[in-house]
Every structure is written in structure tokens, then in C-alpha cells.
């Protein structure tokens, strides 16, 4: 797979698996395709043959509803067969609606209740330090999710413990279920808030592989504090009728919409 095509392939699987499941969350999955490509295909130290390798880098999808992007990425990276994606959200399937660490190879933490994943990531980063293990922890959080108080409790703890091995990526798409984040409950000024909590803040275009890569490398080089990468993204990115529309937060495409989406993804770069 040439680099250009991985994010596109991830997007294809996202729309296919939500259509097959007739449920799931395409919007906030499509916004993460490039970020997941850089993490799983370039930067994270992982081995699909040994998902439990103790020295691996770990990943926490704190905005757990974005399982379509997580599962597509894990499948394409070889953690489990791509065919499994067809069973997403079906009874008796390993691919639960929200990440289930006890059943799915490559899932490092169970999430789904917003606000809780980041604390788990802090715990993993503390454990890595205790074990003198130089592995890193990456966590993806949502902008709506930043309304949860627990996010800020975790932010405080990570800075307090100077967890330079923790990198958070904020999927800053300015949408949540009920509309625009700044209208539902304003979280701004978001960069200043994280800075004030003692984090290094890097802003980037969340759909540009080069700048995402650079941002992650900067985070890896930081030695004194945790880093948050504020990734400016478009919810529903890549499927024009889903882009910037909160109605596609938790709705699956029907067969006709799936065909349209796949055709568009085929055309797009």
C-alpha cells in the first residue's frame, strides 16, 4: 500500500462497515483517517503478530465511538482479518460497538464512556515509566469530549507527573451530536487551556500527513511535559455529503449512500 492510499483505504472500510452494520459512527471516524495512518503505519512501535507485546506503544481511543476507524486501521495493519469488519456490531462478534480490550487484538483500552480513556492513558504512561520501558502512549480525544471534567483531571495529572511519554491528539472537528461544539458548550480557548494545564501544544492540519508526522515527531522529542496535538479536522472528511454535518455523527449510510461514498472516495486524492 502506498502511503497516499492508506487513509483512503481506511475511509473505504469505515463506510463499508457502518453500512453493513446499519449503525455506527462514520463522521468522527472519517476525521481521523490520516492521523491513524501516521500512528499505526509509521510512528507507533507495534507488532501485529504480538498484540500483547509489553514493550509496544499503546493507543487509547478515548472518543470510543470512533471504532470504525480503529477497527479498519487494526485490520489493515494486520491485527485481525479484514473480513472480520463485516461483523461489526453484530451479535457474537468480537467487534463491539465500542472498543473492548479483552476481546479485540490490538485494542489497548476499553472506552465508550467519554472522558474516561485519557485517564487510562495516564495510567499506562505512569506504568511505562515505572517499568523503565521507553514505550509511548497515544490517546485520541474529541473536542466535545473535552467538556467532561475528567479530561481536565487527567490533563492535570499528566502534567503533574511530567508524562513526556504521553501524546494526546485532539480531533478538533468542532462538531458533537447536537451541533457545533462552541454552541453546545464552548470549550475555547482550547490551546490556551491545555497550555495553562502545563502541556506542550502543537496545532496541525489533521488531514495533512506531513504536518501530522512532524507534530508527532516533535511530541516524541519533548522531554519535559506531555504534548497535545490539536488536529484541525473535518468531521465526515472525504465523503462530501457527510462533511461538517452532525447528522452523520451516529448514522450509517444505506446501500445507495454507500455506493456514492465509495465512488467519491475512489475519485478523491
Amino acid at each position: 500500500m502506498s502511503s497516499k492510499n492508506i487513509a483512503k483505504e481506511i475511509r473505504r472500510e469505515i463506510v463499508k462497515m457502518t453500512a453493513a452494520a446499519k449503525s455506527g459512527h462514520p463522521g468522527g471516524s472519517l476525521s481521523l483517517a490520516e492521523i491513524m495512518e501516521v500512528l499505526y503505519f509509521e510512528e507507533m512501535k507495534i507488532d501485529p503478530a504480538q498484540p500483547d507485546w509489553p514493550e509496544r506503544d499503546r493507543f487509547v481511543l478515548s472518543k470510543g465511538h470512533a471504532t470504525p476507524v480503529l477497527y479498519s486501521t487494526l485490520a489493515l495493519r494486520g491485527f485481525f482479518p479484514k473480513e472480520e469488519l463485516k461483523n461489526f456490531r453484530q451479535i457474537d462478534s468480537i467487534l463491539q460497538g465500542h472498543p473492548d480490550m479483552k476481546g479485540i487484538p490490538g485494542v489497548d483500552f476499553s472506552t465508550g464512556s467519554l472522558g474516561q480513556g485519557l485517564s487510562g492513558a495516564v495510567g499506562m504512561a505512569l506504568a511505562a515509566r515505572l517499568d523503565k520501558n521507553n514505550s509511548r502512549v497515544y490517546a485520541v480525544i474529541g473536542d466535545g469530549e473535552c467538556q467532561e471534567g475528567q479530561i481536565w483531571e487527567a490533563a492535570m495529572a499528566a502534567a503533574h507527573y511530567k508524562l513526556a511519554n504521553l501524546t494526546v491528539i485532539l480531533d478538533y472537528n468542532n462538531l458533537q451530536i447536537c451541533g457545533k461544539v462552541d454552541e453546545v458548550m464552548d470549550i475555547g480557548p482550547i490551546a490556551e487551556k491545555w497550555q495553562a494545564f502545563g502541556w506542550r501544544v502543537i496545532e496541525t492540519d489533521g488531514h495533512d500527513l506531513d504536518t501530522i508526522r512532524q507534530a508527532i515527531k516533535m511530541a516524541q522529542a519533548e522531554e519535559s511535559c506531555p504534548t497535545i496535538i490539536i488536529a484541525h479536522t473535518i468531521k465526515g472528511k472525504g465523503v462530501s455529503f457527510m462533511e461538517n454535518d452532525p447528522d452523520w455523527h451516529g448514522r450509517a449510510p444505506n446501500q445507495e449512500q454507500l455506493a456514492l461514498a465509495l465512488a467519491e472516495l475512489e475519485k478523491g486524492e
Partner: peptide
Amino acid sequence: VGEDGASH
């Protein structure tokens, strides 16, 4: 609740 699974 159905498809959202155990977390919900």
C-alpha cells in the same frame, strides 16, 4: 440499547 454494546 442494542448495537452500541455493553459500555452503553
